[in-house]
Amino acid sequence: MPASPSTIDDYLKTIYHHTEWQTQPVTPSILASELGLAPSSVTEMVKKLAAQGLVSHRPYGPISLTDAGTLRATSVIRRHRLIETWLVREFGYAWDEVHDEAEVLEHTISDRLLAGIDARLGHPRFDPHGDAIPAPDGTVEREPFVLLAEAALGHTGRVLRVSDRDPSLLRALEEAGIDVGHTVTATGRDAVQVDGGPTIELPAAAASAVWISA
């Protein structure tokens, strides 16, 4: 049975996301875990994607996007992130509320409406979480970064990106003043100074969800 376009898009997005902010390659088992699917189902789907020229994969090895797969993945991600930005700027959504809405809308709005949204927003380069919005040709601009959990003590950098995977963590970070564009200094394993203020303790897992400039 042929896979639906939205299913294909979800696989390509997940593969792209996995290596967007770190270098560990994605394997079928990792992909199955991230998608919440049985490994056997993922293996069959990866074979279909490879047959369509969207991914490269050898048995028991990592999965990588081909040029065609990357272009399709970045096209969907561009839609998703523009929609998230639109919902925050135009409709007053909080940054922890936009992901699920965008997941639905990215498959339904027309290219004409997307172009109108992009123009109205002034062609933004980043979404509310700091993720780069790919250009129409798939290119992405991103400055050197380091995961806060891996930053050396005393390292100071601007918050470039905050993971949107856990809405409750997003809210906790916002309450702590850790938002995209603010400056943080790593003062301990789970402690930072924000914009030169006093040291604050981070919520659990926060340091592994924040990327700062290198």
Rank of each mutant, 00 (worst) to 15 (best):
167 P>Q: 12
169 L>D: 04
148 L>Y: 08
86 W>E: 09
197 G>Y: 05
96 D>L: 01
19 T>W: 02
107 H>A: 09
78 R>A: 01
143 E>G: 09
82 L>V: 07
131 D>T: 04
188 G>N: 09
93 Y>K: 13
59 P>Y: 06
151 A>T: 07
170 L>E: 06
110 S>Y: 03
98 V>W: 02
168 S>K: 14
113 L>R: 12
77 I>M: 13
19 T>M: 06
74 T>D: 01
25 P>M: 04
76 V>P: 00
183 T>Y: 08
4 S>A: 15
67 D>K: 13
80 H>W: 02
81 R>A: 02
182 H>R: 15
17 H>T: 03
107 H>T: 10
166 D>P: 01
172 A>I: 00
61 G>E: 14
48 K>E: 12
86 W>N: 03
127 D>Y: 00
77 I>D: 00
119 A>T: 11
133 I>W: 00
94 A>C: 02
10 D>N: 13
139 T>A: 11
123 H>L: 08
189 R>P: 02
55 V>N: 09
146 V>T: 15
25 P>D: 07
185 T>F: 08
132 A>N: 01
163 S>D: 13
89 R>T: 12
120 R>S: 12
80 H>I: 01
21 W>P: 00
166 D>M: 12
28 P>I: 09
186 A>G: 01
102 A>D: 01
107 H>L: 03
2 P>I: 07
42 V>W: 05
38 A>H: 14
187 T>N: 03
55 V>M: 08
102 A>C: 09
9 D>F: 01
54 L>E: 04
185 T>S: 11
167 P>V: 10
56 S>E: 15
199 T>V: 15
22 Q>V: 00
207 A>T: 10
181 G>Y: 03
42 V>T: 09
66 T>M: 08
206 A>G: 10
105 L>W: 10
62 P>V: 06
140 V>W: 01
208 S>C: 01
3 A>C: 05
132 A>Q: 03
196 G>P: 07
